[in-house]
């Protein structure tokens, strides 16, 4: 691992330079909202951002993705796999919480036995440049409660940390090191810089004011699939997909064919357990008939089932669902309330 320093003012241009060579997916400000988007030629990323409205998972796991084309012929169906091959890409400016989300998504999409080629290919061809949080971006951030850290980015190829006049750039993987020359003039980081990073990182941890007992509720969830508590959280829920669609770890999808005449495509789209048709069966029966059952599923999946399957909580504490829920359903409050039932 190499640690280098660059002047703060130089970063924007470096990213612009990288974007001249390969596609860069980075935060961009549109109106008063920040989104991850591919940078246009000559466009600089928006560096002074807190975090984006949408999670960067869309790069590896797009909301709409064509899996294959098919044509009905006299000899049967002819299948043509989607032949788009991805060039090497750079994902720039990912916050540590969102970097963690990729490790969690890998557990689902990149298993030994079952591997999702669409996800894995894009993931492998992408270099992730993380931007540490000097301050927690929002008062709703709770990454430290779910195993994260505002200034560490396990899983990133390059980690950039804001110091006083410089950025400390740490090249964490061979993929990251390949980009060194695009960074131009780099100074080697001295002891003082590394110490300052440590100081600021501790400050960032201390500045996180939102905490939830995320690991303490598993035992309660294990034995309380039926409990009056589940009647108390869902009434205001609109059953929209905002929380799932903005969540960096939600990964449910639907697959369907869209045909026109003899030609068709097979699409994969995001899905949400908040929707009534998510669990609707062909017979008309719906095993999760109401929002109560759907909210229980959402909670259970994040804090129990995922832990059972992969030994990790499927939440990175970014706070997007808390901030964007149209009716202010707050997952932090729900987890806190469950902990009180223990």
């Amino acid at each position: 691992m190499e640690a280098k320093l660059i002047k703060k003012a130089a970063l924007g241009d470096i990213v612009k330079k990288i974007a001249g060579q390969k596609p860069v997916y980075a935060p961009v400000k549109e109106g008063s909202k920040v989104h991850f988007k591919f940078l246009a030629k000559g466009e600089s990323p928006f560096l002074a951002y807190a975090n984006s409205v949408n999670a960067p998972k869309n790069l590896f796991f797009p909301q709409t993705e064509t899996l294959m084309h098919y044509t009905k012929t006299a000899r049967g169906n002819e299948l043509v796999e989607e032949s788009e091959t991805f060039s090497e890409m750079v994902l720039f400016g990912v916050r540590p919480c969102d970097v963690r989300s990729f490790k969690l998504l890998d557990m689902v999409f990149d298993q030994k036995q079952y591997s999702d080629p669409y996800y894995v290919e894009k993931r492998e061809r992408t270099t992730i440049i993380a931007l540490a949080c000097r301050q927690p971006p929002f008062s709703t951030c709770f990454c430290t409660s779910v195993g994260g850290h505002p200034a560490q980015a396990d899983g990133a190829d390059i980690l950039i940390s804001e110091l006083d006049d410089d950025y400390l750039v740490e090249f964490l993987s061979p993929k990251g090191e390949k980009l060194i020359k695009l960074f131009g003039d780099l100074r080697a980081a001295d002891e003082a810089a590394l110490n300052r990073k440590k100081e600021l990182s501790d400050e960032a941890v201390a500045a996180i004011k939102s905490h939830i007992p995320a690991t303490e509720i598993k035992t309660w969830l294990d034995s309380n699939f039926e409990h009056p508590f589940w009647d108390s959280i869902h009434q205001g829920c609109l059953a929209c997909g905002t929380c799932s669609y903005l969540c960096p770890t939600c990964h449910c999808f639907d697959i369907r064919d869209e045909a026109q005449g003899d030609d068709g495509i097979r699409l994969r789209t995001w899905d949400s357990c908040m929707y009534s048709i998510y669990s609707q069966e062909t017979s008309g029966h719906n095993p999760r008939p109401g929002q109560k059952q759907r909210w229980r599923q959402r909670l259970m999946h994040k804090f129990k089932y995922f832990v059972d399957n992969y030994d990790a909580i499927s939440c990175v504490g970014c706070g997007r669902c808390v901030m964007s829920c149209p009716v202010n359903t707050d997952i932090r409050k729900i987890v806190n309330d469950i902990a009180k039932l223990n």
Partner: peptide
């Protein structure tokens, strides 16, 4: 629009 259907559902 990200088709979350919040507009329709409210």
């Amino acid at each position: 629009c990200m088709r979350c259907y919040a507009c329709r559902n409210i």
